[in-house]
Design a protein around this nucleic acid. Structure first.
Length: 235
DNA sequence: GCATTAAATAGAA
DNA sequence: TTCTATTTAATGC
């Protein structure tokens, strides 16, 4: 049984304030996991038995409507906890966690969440902070869905992905995980056809470039204007 | 303005 | 080849 390296948790917010021996303790209790692209870390409605830390990769939280339609609620970047429903007293996972790219996780049984929260300084506050941030994010997208036009929604969705996963590529910023038009339609409440048409139009205008499953934003400022963020618009 | 349907093309496994 | 992602046109609300 190989031990996990302590550097894994260095600089990861929920654990950043801990001493070396404390990190050792936590790692010895962790179960490592690898998940292929498209695999589910856990599923909506399952009993929440473990909580996870995403070390590498991107995970999307997906909800399925009774009619079987998938909605992508939000994306989780590396370094964040997921499956922390137990922290707010929920016994079942509220959404399905699908890996957007190949992902690496650590996980612990939920009973340890309370132990960690009591024992380690900053652990509880950090998890509540990310919970709060996510609540804010879904509220924002709900607002957009209700008030904004499709073009603006797709623009904001692209910007959000760029912000949390963007990496410098030649001529722009590239979204750091595979995304299909269908994926984008699932986060914006439209169809893949409309997304395809919008991206084609934007590509002509030099705002984005795209290959299959790969999108780079070449003119973030124009996208921001299209998203109708704030400032001068035409409502 | 945007969804739906259908049909064609092209890349990946 | 077969499956999947993407594009494009036509039609309707």
């Amino acid at each position: 049984m190989s031990r996990l390296d302590e550097s894994l948790l260095r600089g990861v917010p929920p654990f950043s304030k801990l001493s070396r021996p404390e990190i050792r303790e936590i790692l010895d209790l962790a179960r490592p996991g690898r998940h292929a692209e498209g695999a589910a870390v856990f599923r909506e409605g399952m009993a929440a038995e473990r909580f996870f830390l995403l070390l590498d990769g991107f995970v999307r939280a997906v909800r399925t409507s009774p009619e079987g339609e998938q909605i992508i609620v939000l994306h989780i970047p590396p370094g964040e906890l997921l499956g922390i429903a137990p922290a707010i007293g929920r016994t079942h996972y509220p959404a399905t966690a699908i890996c957007a790219s190949e992902s690496v996780t650590l996980s612990w049984p939920v009973r340890l969440w309370t132990v960690f929260a009591g024992k380690y300084d900053g652990f509880a506050s950090e998890t509540y902070r990310t919970l709060g941030n996510r609540l804010g994010e879904v509220q924002e997208t709900v607002m957009e869905l209700a008030t904004k036009a499709v073009e603006q929604r797709v623009a904001s969705a692209l910007l959000r992905m760029v912000h949390q996963s963007g990496r410098k590529a030649d001529g722009g910023i590239e979204i750091g995980f595979p995304v299909t038009r269908a994926n984008i339609s699932e986060m914006t409440g439209t169809t893949l056809h409309t997304v395809s048409r919008l991206l084609a139009a934007w590509e002509k205008r030099g705002i984005v470039e795209s290959a299959r499953k790969h999108i780079t934003v070449t003119d973030p400022h124009q996208l921001m204007l299209l998203s109708g963020a704030s400032g001068a618009g035409s409502p």
